[in-house]
Amino acid sequence: MDALNRALDSDIFHSFRRSPAVVVSAIVTVLFFAGAILAPWIAPQNPFDLAQVDLMDASLPPFWLPDGQPHFPLGTDTQGRDVFSTILFGSRISLLVGVLSVAFAMVLGIALGLVAGYAGGAVDAVIMRIADVQLSFPAILIALLIDGVARLVIPRELHHEIAIYVLILAIGFSGWVQYARTVRGSCMVEKGKEYVQAARVIGRHPAAIMLQHVLPNVLGPVLVIATIHLAIAIISEATLSFLGVGVPPTEPSLGTLIRIGNNFLFSGEWWITVFPGAALVVMVLAVNLLGDWLRDALNPKLR
């Protein structure tokens, strides 16, 4: 209770309440996460359960247009699947891939950044040169490369099953450099501080110093990067899925939905692609705004 009161009185919460755009972004983000997590229970239909889909309902427009039906609020696609439900399920995949790939990039980046920053010397040089090389390629290209290699190595019959994990790995791996650089920088600053020297005088093991002393003090900027990276990861996933190398159409993400719907754009069924597209834009925008605010709120110089 005491902790809650302190949190409500903190500067961060105060700056949060003062900005309506941030409050709206937070609400939108929470709604998306809630919708995604609860999709199997709140979606009007499970679009991937063939028993619930009826071809007779195919290509219905949104409810406010003529022929629109109230129980398909955003219309249906050419196979009779409810667009609103596919968006809920699609966000589920998009957010899952986004969150897990950010987590993967974060763990990899923090670990390498800590080691580079704390050890210094040759270890630092090797890690950071690899980072430099990777940074000279566009992230999406790295992801495509990893995806391509994985497809070659993995037997064909497993492709569909593990496609999503390959995707997470590919997007995550293409994003670790930012974390490593930031953590390395903060780590070198913290390393010079007297509390770290005090721990060294006490005789703590370097690994204990890194994990218990340095790590908690470099997480602030990491949190900011992670939020902004989440938006980027969602976009990357959508891009890859749109290009057809992402998740398979049997469990489509927002990117896959946009790709599928794209084919019907000119035949008049615009809602099949526009609504998933709009959902993607709103979701990414909300997460981005949150990230921007967090960066400013955690930066004492701007306060």
Binding site: K193, I202, G203, N217
Partner: peptide, 21 residues
């Protein structure tokens, strides 16, 4: 380590010498 615990150090900056977390 056995020798180490017999000496300790106090630092200059009281704002930097304690882990803030």
């Amino acid at each position: 380590e056995r020798v180490r615990r017999r000496f300790q150090m106090i630092f200059q900056d009281p704002y930097a010498s304690l882990n803030p977390r």
